[in-house]
Computed example of a mutant assay.
Amino acid sequence: MERPRLLQSVLGCFGAASGLKENPPKSTAAPIGCSNDFLAVVVPLLPCPLGRLPCSYLGLPLSIRKPRKAELQALLDKLASKLPFWKGRLMTREGQLVYVQAVMTASVVYHLALDVDPWFIKDVDKL
């Protein structure tokens, strides 16, 4: 079935505004709270297959619920692995501060898009 012109127009406008292009083979649509009747009408119009939540987008877990402690602990472990303790002894204090500001701050800000508990932020500060 050929996609309707409206959908093509919306995707074209999005591409023109953002500089991005659609890539249907790498894309999925994850419906949230949709009835089967609605999906039966919409799915044939989509240029990509259906996916399910939870999923990952650019390494960030996407879900309709708050992340569990085990998931946040995995993120904390990932952040800790970016702190090479043996290299820290070889860097000056100023070099350590630059590293933390450049690498750790960017990683934490990226993951704070999640709804995290205060314990997660305290553990990141301890790192």
Rank of each mutant, 00 (worst) to 15 (best):
G95N: 00
Y57F: 12
Y110N: 06
K26W: 04
K82A: 15
R93E: 14
G19C: 08
L62V: 11
D123Q: 13
P67L: 02
A113N: 12
L72Y: 03
L58G: 05
C48F: 06
L53Y: 01
Y57Q: 03
S107D: 12
R68L: 14
D117N: 04
K21A: 15
P47Y: 06
K69C: 14
A113R: 12
M91E: 03
K78D: 08
A40R: 07
N36G: 09
W119V: 11
V103N: 01
L112W: 02
S56M: 07
S107I: 03
K126Q: 10
P44V: 10
V42S: 02
A106S: 12
A16S: 15
D37T: 14
L39K: 05
I32H: 01
R93D: 13
R89T: 14
L75E: 11
M91A: 04
L11I: 13
S63H: 06
W119N: 06
L20N: 07
H111A: 14
D117V: 09
Q8A: 15
S56R: 06
Q73N: 10
A70H: 07
M104V: 12
P47D: 10
N36W: 03
K66G: 09
P54E: 07
L6S: 15
P67A: 10
C34M: 09
P25G: 10
S81P: 00
S81M: 13
P25A: 05
M104W: 00
Y57M: 02
A102Q: 03
F120Q: 02
S18C: 04
L62W: 03
Q73R: 13
V42I: 14
P84A: 15
N36M: 10
L58I: 04
D115P: 01
C55A: 15
P31D: 06
L58W: 01
K87G: 09
S9I: 09
D123C: 11
I64E: 11
E22F: 08
V100W: 01
P24F: 10
L62A: 06
A70T: 15
V124H: 00
L50Q: 07
S81F: 01
L39R: 01
T105R: 12
G15C: 06
W86N: 10
Y110T: 08
T105I: 07
Y57T: 05
A17Y: 08
G59M: 03
A80V: 02
I32D: 01
A70R: 13
L11H: 09
P44S: 12
L53V: 04
W119L: 02
K82H: 13
T92L: 03
K78S: 15
V10A: 12
D125W: 02
K78C: 13
L97Y: 06
L60D: 05
M1Y: 08
A70N: 11
D37W: 01
D125V: 09
P49Q: 09
T28K: 13
R89Y: 07
P54L: 05
G59E: 03
R93C: 11
T92Y: 00
G95K: 01
A102V: 05
L72T: 11
R93Y: 09
L79N: 05
T105G: 00
S107V: 03
A106G: 03
L53N: 02
M91S: 04
R3N: 13
L7E: 08
L114P: 00
L75T: 10
K26R: 12
S35T: 12
S81H: 10
